[in-house]
Design a protein around this nucleic acid. Structure first.
Lengths: 300, 300
DNA sequence: ATAATAGTGTCTTTCAGACAGTATAGT
DNA sequence: ACTATACTGTCTGAAAGACACTATTAT
């Protein structure tokens, strides 16, 4: 069976022996990691709850191209390295944490996305809780820094065509770390023509952000926003013990809208387990601490 | 700004000029297309509605490796070709249709997935309605054939560990075209340990299917099943005019469960527009024909 | 008339939104 | 006592599940 001969009279072994991988020109392959965490801002009023902020890890480029700009951590994939292993390796380098949530996000393959040569980026999204981090915001090792992320929809329009419509949305991504402020303006175009639907993402402008990484950040946040509503990924952003108000805050900053406490609690009640502990020294009623309920999905 | 010098004293232009893309060893890159359609089986009883079947397009390999086995249509990406363009090009070759729904599915990058050399597969999923097809089931041009697809869960188990659990599911993918019958047994392992969750997909056995394509088919069906519940992608599988019963059948074969007509109609009513036409010669009450309502999402 | 599907009416359950009202710490 | 947050109770309305009932055709 395995010894069938092909058109050139070769069996499988012979074929593999003469196969020359270098006869085609191959693009280069990199993985990029979109690492999110949530941190608290200090609050002046001792009674008020600290506000939470969504952060993303960026590294300052020391080399051409985009030298001096900020990029997602990442790099070339070893020829004998699996994609996810490569992503985890970079992540470990930057954060020194290895047991983290990670998922493949999207593979960006536009021919001109890198000025050097054709380089594909297989992007991964990772979520981490800031309590386990060795690089805290402000650390400067290897020039990796946390930037707060905000996404705002600047403009939205729908133009009807003979046979459908074109819907455009301009999202402004703003990234801040103390003095540094980066931004990208991404236009998401959904064209619906007859039976076909096509989504395109373009970078209108990008300040201080290397490559097409502004686009990747925008895409990642959209994915995170969707997934948080029907999965438990948000818990990867939480410490071991947390209050339901803290959990709600995390949902709120990701979804960018306020939620009603009563409804929120009903929604998450099966995903958490109450502990005996409570917060204290809060200047108001203490809050019960919860932990993630690993069994909430009940597969059977 | 653009003339900053790097560590070697080069500005951007100089750097790009001396950049040698071939100094790294790069994996090869292919796109593979998972093309689904839905067809009707002939029915012996003139009164009965024809049953619908989900089909996937496969091509018979004429070359090593996996010579004689069936694979997803696909091939190497041109060095100056965008990923989606490459996928659409293959699709056009096979089906002679170009305005189709297509979305990126996943990038498969396991080191040993191809016996020749390291080859990445960036997989795309595409949906098409069988009325527009030039290759009808049974056509033999270029050895591309439609196979009916069924997925069955053979075994499901959950093993509790100290700190979490391991959930395993064995999915059997069965592909049929007349005399030919292919199959793959895929084990999906979800490991939940403390805060981490890891999903792995392994091929336990594969008969007649080339490469890891059984895994890609299983993954694609899972994606289709999820997306059909909250998007309108199912309409890509429908002809211009269709009855609500036909639409319901499509949902049923993809979700692999029966739906109640009343609830289903309520769910889709905003997504369709009633026409004046009806089916006839049915041997029972005629059914109104509907078309897709392009504006159902009302963005504003 | 019959078989088979098309399509509607309505009861129930479930779940999310809204919001008022109660609880409880530190100062 | 006051402030700020924690937490609960309950009304309402929307959507999904269940199922009985009516409608309509070709033979």
């Amino acid at each position: 069976m395995i010894n069938k001969l092909d058109n050139n009279g070769l069996n499988l072994d012979e074929f593999l022996k003469q196969y020359d991988a270098s006869k085609f020109q191959n693009p280069s392959l990199a993985t990029d990691i979109l690492l999110f965490t949530v941190t608290e801002m200090e609050e002046e009023n001792y009674r008020k709850l600290p506000e939470k902020v969504l952060k993303v890890l960026l590294v300052k480029r020391k080399m051409h191209p985009f030298m001096g700009m900020w990029a997602l951590p990442g790099g070339f994939v070893g020829i004998d390295e699996n994609l996810e292993d490569s992503a985890r390796r970079k992540l470990k380098q930057k954060t020194n944490v290895d047991k983290v949530y990670i998922e493949q996000l999207y593979t960006w393959g536009e021919v001109t996305r890198d000025p050097r040569t054709r380089i594909l980026s297989c992007s991964y999204m990772s979520l981490i809780n800031n309590k386990v981090l060795s690089i805290k915001p402000g650390d400067d090792e290897e020039d990796a820094k946390w930037f707060s992320v905000r996404i705002k929809t600047l403009k939205e329009q729908k133009i009807n065509t003979e046979n459908g419509y074109v819907y455009e949305r301009n999202n402004k991504v703003t990234l801040k770390n103390g003095e540094e402020k980066l931004s990208a303006d991404i236009k998401i175009t959904t064209s619906v023509e007859g039976r076909t639907r096509d989504i395109k993402r373009e970078i209108i402008s990008s300040e201080g952000i290397a490559f097409d990484h502004g686009k990747i950040i925008q895409y990642g946040i959209e994915r995170l926003r969707n997934k948080i509503t029907y999965t438990d990924i948000a818990f990867n952003l939480m410490p071991e013990l947390f209050t339901l108000s803290e959990l709600q805050q995390v949902y709120e900053i990701i979804m960018d809208k306020e939620l009603l406490a009563a409804a929120f609690r009903r929604k998450v009640v099966d995903m958490v387990i109450e502990t005996n502990e409570s917060t204290k020294d809060a200047g108001h009623r203490p809050s019960k601490l919860y932990r993630f309920n690993i069994d909430w999905e009940n597969k059977f």
